[in-house]
Simulated scan of single mutants.
Amino acid sequence: MPHGRNYRDPRRINRRARNLARQRVLAQQVSCAICDRPIDDAIRWPDPMSVEVDEIIPVSLGGSATDLCNLEKVHCCCNQLKSDKSLAWARRKAKGAPALKPTAMPFSTSAW
């Protein structure tokens, strides 16, 4: 993510639009977009199962912080797991499936 005097955080440029979009996402009664488990809106931060709003395409990779199509409701722990990775990667990790690169080759040894 770029830093410096001229960098402007997209999440803060239009704070009002961001807050309105977050409120709409948080009002939805849906399960976590990453792990598919229910979200209890009564659980508050810093509990790992508290609710957060995640950008599907991270802002650091050009995603919108205000577009409802790029925002989803998730658990805090799931959001931390995802970080700036893809949604598909985070879903695989949350479900315990290996997150292998498509170019990964199995390692084998020979008994010479």
Results as ranks from 00 to 15, higher is better:
4 G>C: 01
4 G>S: 00
6 N>E: 00
7 Y>M: 11
9 D>R: 03
10 P>F: 01
12 R>W: 03
12 R>S: 02
12 R>I: 04
13 I>R: 11
17 A>F: 05
17 A>W: 10
17 A>G: 03
18 R>G: 03
18 R>D: 02
19 N>K: 12
23 Q>R: 15
23 Q>Y: 14
23 Q>S: 14
25 V>S: 03
28 Q>Y: 05
34 I>L: 10
35 C>Y: 01
36 D>A: 13
36 D>P: 13
39 I>C: 07
41 D>W: 10
45 W>N: 15
47 D>K: 00
48 P>H: 03
48 P>Q: 09
48 P>W: 12
49 M>D: 03
50 S>N: 03
53 V>W: 08
54 D>V: 09
56 I>P: 06
57 I>M: 13
58 P>S: 14
58 P>A: 14
58 P>T: 02
61 L>T: 06
62 G>F: 02
64 S>I: 04
65 A>H: 06
66 T>C: 03
66 T>S: 01
67 D>H: 06
69 C>D: 01
70 N>C: 02
70 N>V: 06
75 H>E: 11
77 C>V: 15
78 C>W: 09
79 N>I: 06
81 L>V: 10
83 S>T: 11
84 D>L: 02
86 S>N: 12
86 S>E: 09
87 L>S: 10
89 W>Y: 15
90 A>Q: 05
91 R>N: 06
91 R>A: 03
91 R>V: 09
92 R>G: 05
94 A>P: 07
95 K>C: 12
97 A>N: 12
97 A>K: 13
98 P>Y: 08
99 A>F: 01
101 K>L: 11
102 P>R: 10
110 S>M: 14
